[in-house]
């Protein structure tokens, strides 16, 4: 099968280019395996990120045949295509080939304080009922792959916008009954660069390889903020 892969090495190339490879593909071959085959057998200079190989680390996100995908979770047969075209995550600065600069993504992630704010941590059990835990089940599936972030038109036009992943994580804690971040945490997403920039385009939800409805969480944060503004319990 023919693979066309986006290439760019800032130390050598003045412009991006494409390399094509013929890769043997069998039943169940994943895109990650195909890329590793290229590195092992044809071209050791091809760069991409991966770690877990089982869709839990979020490192191998890329743009494949026009869609955001995890390389390790994508079986070539499922693409139902004669050719596989691989790009890095769109709209992020490229470091080399399929490796993008994620520093902006992590900066915004840190900005929402992505950890439990609670008293007595480690001293006693913080009880959470099964139902309360279920309410944030979906948000907990996020693997921080940045597919959503790279697909969001508001991130493209406004680089300061916190973006879907950070906001999803903010809701993951704002909706956690053990979290005592309360209004303090909500304030972190209430600014011009927070939830209000989201226009419910749903690109993020479509791009998410974990099928998370990120937009729902962002809307839930808006509802919480609106309730707090009119004096109701968020």
């Amino acid at each position: 099968m023919q693979f066309t892969v986006f290439r760019f090495d800032p130390e050598v190339d003045r412009e991006p280019r494409y390399s094509t490879y013929q890769v043997p593909v069998g039943e169940g071959t994943t895109l990650l395996e195909a890329l590793l085959w290229i590195v092992d057998n044809v071209d050791g200079s091809l760069s991409f990120r991966y770690a877990c190989r089982e869709a839990i680390c979020g490192a191998c996100a890329m743009f494949v045949n026009g869609k955001h995908r995890l390389a390790c979770k994508t079986q070539i047969k499922d693409l139902r295509a004669d050719e596989v075209v691989v790009h890095p995550l769109p709209h992020l600065p490229i470091i080399k080939d399929l490796v993008v600069d994620m520093s902006g993504f992590w900066e915004k992630y840190r900005a929402i304080r992505p950890y439990l704010i609670a008293e007595g941590l480690g001293e006693r059990e913080l009880y959470q009922s099964h139902a309360d835990r279920q309410a944030i089940d979906e948000m907990l599936n996020c693997i921080l792959c940045a597919c959503c972030y790279s697909s969001c038109p508001m991130v493209w036009t406004n680089p300061k916008y916190l973006g879907p992943a950070a906001l999803l994580k903010a809701y993951r804690f704002a909706g956690d009954t053990r979290d005592k971040g309360g209004l303090e945490r909500l304030k972190l997403v209430a600014g011009e660069d927070g939830v209000w920039r989201c226009h419910t385009v749903f690109n993020c939800a479509e791009a998410c390889p974990k099928d998370i409805n990120i937009t729902w969480s962002i809307q839930a944060l808006k509802r919480k903020l609106a309730r707090a503004a009119v004096g109701l319990r968020p």
């Binding site: 209430a190 209000w196 808006k222 903020l225 609106a226 707090a228 503004a229 009119v230």
Partner: peptide, 8 residues
Amino acid sequence: MRTWAWIL
């Protein structure tokens, strides 16, 4: 302020 812009 931004919250009120959205509510209104």
